[in-house]
Design a protein around this nucleic acid. Structure first.
Lengths: 187, 187
DNA sequence: ACCTGAACACCGTTCAAGT
DNA sequence: ACCTGAACACCGTTCAAGT
């Protein structure tokens, strides 16, 4: 890829991040192009449609999720449940700080997730390992599945900054984590 | 309101319910009008904009929520936590069966909820009573707030039929309910 | 009092012309 | 190879004309 093209691509992503995070009404591609200092056509050259642009944000976010979960696998040998719980806490916190990606995650359609397909698969593989390890240690509710990790994360994300409702997503997450613990090992 | 106007209003709502529930791409007001057998202008005469149309579905759903919670207040004297939990279970199940309202709840903006403002306030009042009673009985986690009722319902709703993900929202809800129980009284 | 649908406005996407 | 932005298409909303 030519150097100027690469630079434009980065500028478009940066503009999308800024605008998706700040604007109230639906952000337009024309706005993204203007903010990035390129023509609309250039946005479409790099991202076939709006969903693909949002998809790229989601893809990058999943990469960050996956890094955090790999670290949990490496470092959490002694406390398998806590390793899983902490990685979910940190991932939720990173989404909470990134309104642009949250917008993409929540309002994007199926295409957005397909764009991040590979990273999503890797996410599930890592979740499976963390879940199995915690289950073997007897710290996790036995019917908890690997797919339940993205499920509960989606549930918590849906309650971050929801239309001005005064919701406390951290308490929400702690409720869920406490529900995930095996009955015998609950505090 | 004239009889034909009332009939048109009902037809429009019925059409919206059918289309929001079945269509894949964003449903158009023109489609709703055609399905209802009226002109577009008639849709706009009854509902000032698309959000108001979705808002009406949400409003009616909140009325159903509130009926269920009033019943829980009347009948659940002996088992206050179970009364709260059952009403949440039933409300989630009723949303799960109603794809049109789920669409309105999830993809509608703030205006949709303002349209159901009064019912939403009543919902919070009922939630407060159910929560206080369960807390007094020592069955509920002491830091659980009345606002957490819509919060956890929103979280669970967000994971019903999400882009073909094979998620089990009933297990999700049971996780949350189990996290809501007071530590001392958990099974 | 209410209904109709052509017309308008807005925004996602394309493509002919340019470098 | 890549960029530009005018033009097109689609869909939410309005409003003049009708009953």
């Amino acid at each position: 890829m030519r150097a100027d093209a690469r630079r434009n691509r980065e500028r478009i992503l940066a503009a999308a991040r800024t605008l998706f995070a700040s604007e109230r009404p639906e952000v337009q591609i024309d706005d993204v192009a203007r903010e990035a200092g390129v023509g609309v056509g250039t946005v479409y050259r790099h991202f076939p449609d709006k969903q693909a642009l949002m998809g790229e944000l989601v893809k990058e976010r999943f990469k960050i999720f996956n890094e955090r979960m790999r670290r949990a696998l490496d470092e959490g040998e002694e406390e398998p449940f806590e390793a899983l719980a902490s990685s979910i806490r940190d991932n939720a916190a990173s989404v909470a700080e990134d309104a642009a990606t949250r917008f993409a995650l929540m309002s994007g359609g199926e295409a957005v997730f397909e764009h991040a397909g590979e990273e999503k698969d890797e996410f599930l593989r890592l979740a499976r390992k963390l879940v199995l390890r915690a289950r073997r240690a007897g710290e996790l509710r036995p019917d908890f599945q690997a797919q339940d990790v993205p499920m509960v994360m989606c549930g918590v994300c849906a309650t971050i900054d929801r239309r001005g409702a005064p919701w406390d997503w951290r308490r929400h997450l702690e409720l869920v984590l406490s529900g995930m613990k095996d009955g015998a090992s609950r505090r």
